[in-house]
């Protein structure tokens, strides 16, 4: 029994950064912006969170700084694509390349240092309950934030006026503009939110999942998060399912490696990436669903006519 609980806990830990980053990116894409810089924002969050935790000794301050770092970094993207109407695909790539380089430079002094782990919650009585205790009351705070975020975003997008405004901007920015909505402002806010989420996702990697700083430690998770948004056809609930599916694949291949299955480790390591491709193909085959849910202005620049 304990084995199963520890496996479930490790699946949660592997899924949380994917879930956070994908939920943030979902909001960004719902506003019509395609930010391919998730990987870069995530790794900036990871290094900022780790460095802050090292200096202050407090992982929670680290996580907050990571959120700020992710948001600040996304501002670069927002300025280029929204104010200067630069190409969103290329700018997103630039953000990733810069993020990986910059984080490597910032983190150079922290390589190999033992990390400060954000411990799980410890609620008297509840955390000690058998089976459910560790799962529901004993994990790290970021895990609970990630779950709450999915429901929060779902409620925001589909039940609030502001959410409707955001979706309308993403579906038809010209009409939204004609209705008096400040398209650029809405998109700026969405991009900032996405950056903050990616930053927190990075913090989870460097403060909970690995607790260490390793150069390039995001290892494509930002890109997998982007694929998850497509997989989820821009629905928060499906992002949750997708993220945990990928978490399970990741943990599954770790366990397979540990058991010593007669498949080379490299093949197992590439499983999550191959799974991403397979999933993208499966979802793309269902054209009707993809078409209905894709934000219609996704990736298109908007210059307000005055």
């Amino acid at each position: 029994m304990d084995v199963w609980i520890s496996i479930i806990l490790s699946v949660c830990a592997a899924s949380t950064p994917l879930l956070l980053a994908a939920t943030g990116e979902l909001v960004v894409e719902r506003s019509g912006v395609l930010n391919l810089g998730v990987e870069g924002m995530m790794i900036m969050g990871a290094v900022a969170g780790f460095a802050t935790a090292q200096v202050t000794g407090n992982p929670y301050i680290g996580a907050l700084v990571a959120i700020g770092a992710g948001a600040l970094f996304s501002l670069l993207f927002a300025f280029l694509t929204l104010t200067l109407v630069a190409n969103q695909v290329a700018t997103g790539l630039a953000l990733t390349i810069l993020g990986i380089g910059l984080s490597g430079m910032i983190g150079e002094g922290f390589v190999g240092q033992p990390g400060i782990r954000m411990e799980g919650l410890n609620i008297p009585f509840l955390s000690d309950l058998p089976i459910v205790g560790q799962l529901f009351f004993g994990q790290d705070l970021i895990f609970y934030v990630s779950i709450a975020l999915v429901f929060g975003v779902s409620w925001f997008l589909f039940k609030t006026r502001a959410g409707l405004t955001l979706r309308s901007v993403g579906d038809n920015h010209t009409s939204a503009h004609a209705l008096g909505i400040n398209v650029i402002k809405v998109r700026y806010l969405a991009v900032l939110f996405g950056g903050a989420c990616a930053g927190l996702a990075g913090a989870h990697l460097s403060l909970v999942y690995v607790p260490q700083w390793v150069e390039g430690m995001t290892a494509g998770r930002g890109w997998i998060a982007l694929a998850l948004v497509v997989f989820a056809s821009w629905r928060p609930g499906r992002v949750l399912i997708g993220a945990y599916l990928f978490g399970a694949v990741t943990i599954g291949q770790f366990h397979a490696q540990a058991i010593g299955i007669a498949i080379p480790a490299q093949f197992l390591t590439s499983l999550p990436y191959i799974a991403t491709i397979v999933v993208l193909v499966l979802i793309a085959r269902n054209r009707r669903m993809t078409m209905l849910n894709t934000p219609a202005s996704l990736g298109q620049s908007f210059v307000p006519d005055r």
Partner: peptide, 10 residues
């Protein structure tokens, strides 16, 4: 150098 390259693309 990587930072330079990223900045350059920006």
């Amino acid at each position: 150098a990587r930072v330079f390259q990223g900045l350059l693309l920006f």
